[in-house]
């Protein structure tokens, strides 16, 4: 089982490798990837350095080119693909059928993984992607562990799961909530609830967080004010105010590790290319230790309190959940 960690810059990438990641995934600094944030991601020179660093340490580099090409602009996605192939990245993470088709035709030897943004949730959809010679599918965070197990027994394609980090509760790649409020979505511009639309506003004793003018939440002095990701706001339904879609919480599947190993899951993915090098370092260390322990003897696997406290501390709202993997969550 591969431990796949995020990096938004070279510093984070080195922290990940030095802390025990088997592979790191990154994006280029444009809207060809779904974490297109200012100050984040890699230019051509940095991409080359990233590949060199990973390969010197006998680790793998995955590059996400996982947004959808705009009409008449495919050359930008093509350029991103050519750049990544040229430096010898180990895998491309791709969602757009145009991009998958291009890679299959022009770089048939390049390893390709189907991005979570492609929203593949069943065996027949996996079959669809086989025509592009893909090796692996990244599953959306909507399946229960029972459903993942069923899929793992029916397909010969490698499966990659999100193991830890911010929790996207919608089927990724099929959510237009962000463009509904801002005009920009992960599919079209590579960002959900983009930072340029965020405004913090002190109103009396309350701190309000707004997205493109829409009030997403407001916080009293003793509450931690979270980023206004629009599905994690407090809204009103029939005069009841609550987190109508989801609490600000993070996914943490540490307790499922023995099961994931038994299912032969190819890779566990840590979310957070937008997070700090310190986050990457600490999460990687915990997951490395946990995977090593589980591999040694999965029967005896137990979560060390220190792992849990480190991960909770790094989590959104300092809360974690098993998300959809746990049926009751639904």
């Amino acid at each position: 089982m591969e431990l796949l960690c995020p990096a938004g810059n070279l510093h984070s990438l080195k922290k990940a490798i030095n802390s025990g990641a088997d592979a790191v995934y990154i994006g280029l600094n444009d809207d060809t990837n779904a974490r297109h944030f200012a100050g984040l991601n890699f230019n051509e020179q940095q991409l080359r350095s990233a590949a060199e660093y990973c390969h010197q340490h006998h680790k793998k580099l995955h590059v996400a080119i996982n947004t959808f090409a705009h009409p008449n602009q495919f050359n930008r996605w093509q350029y991103a693909i050519e750049q990544a192939v040229a430096v010898g990245v180990d895998a491309l993470i791709v969602a757009d059928i145009a991009a998958l088709d291009f890679i299959a035709n022009h770089h048939p030897k390049q390893e390709v993984h189907v991005s979570v943004q492609a929203s593949v949730t069943n065996a027949l959809a996996i079959d669809f992607y086989k025509q592009f010679g893909v090796k692996r599918v990244v599953l959306p965070r909507v399946l229960s562990i029972q459903q993942v197990r069923q899929l793992a027994t029916t397909t010969d394609i490698e499966l990659e799961l999100f193991a830890f980090g911010s929790l996207c509760i919608m089927a990724e790649g099929r959510c237009y909530l962000s463009s509904y409020l801002t005009g920009e979505s992960p599919n079209t511009t590579g960002a959900c609830s983009p930072a340029k639309f965020v405004r913090w506003q002190q109103e009396g004793e309350r701190m309000q967080s707004r997205l493109n003018g829409v009030l997403i939440d407001q916080f009293s002095e003793h509450e931690q004010a979270g980023y206004p990701t629009l599905c994690k706001g407090r809204f009103v339904v029939n005069n009841e105010m609550y987190h109508a879609l989801e609490e600000p919480t993070s996914l943490n599947t540490l307790s499922l590790l023995p099961e994931l190993l038994a299912m032969n899951i190819a890779s566990v993915k840590i979310e957070g290319r937008q997070r700090s090098p310190a986050y990457v370092e600490q999460v990687t260390q915990v997951w490395r230790a946990a995977i090593d322990q589980a591999k040694k003897d999965s029967q005896l696997f137990s979560i060390e309190p220190q792992w849990q406290s480190t991960l909770s501390h790094l989590s959104e709202g300092q809360q974690t959940t098993l998300g959809a993997y746990h049926r009751k969550w639904k």
Partner: peptide, 28 residues
């Protein structure tokens, strides 16, 4: 869903692509 695309393609049947399938360019 792409599962339906795959199935209908295998069966050789014509189909409509629904709005939740990601088509953003002419290539796709």
């Amino acid at each position: 869903d792409l599962s339906a695309v795959q199935l209908l393609y295998q069966l050789g049947l014509p189909f409509v692509i629904g709005p939740a399938i990601n088509v953003y360019n002419g290539y796709t």
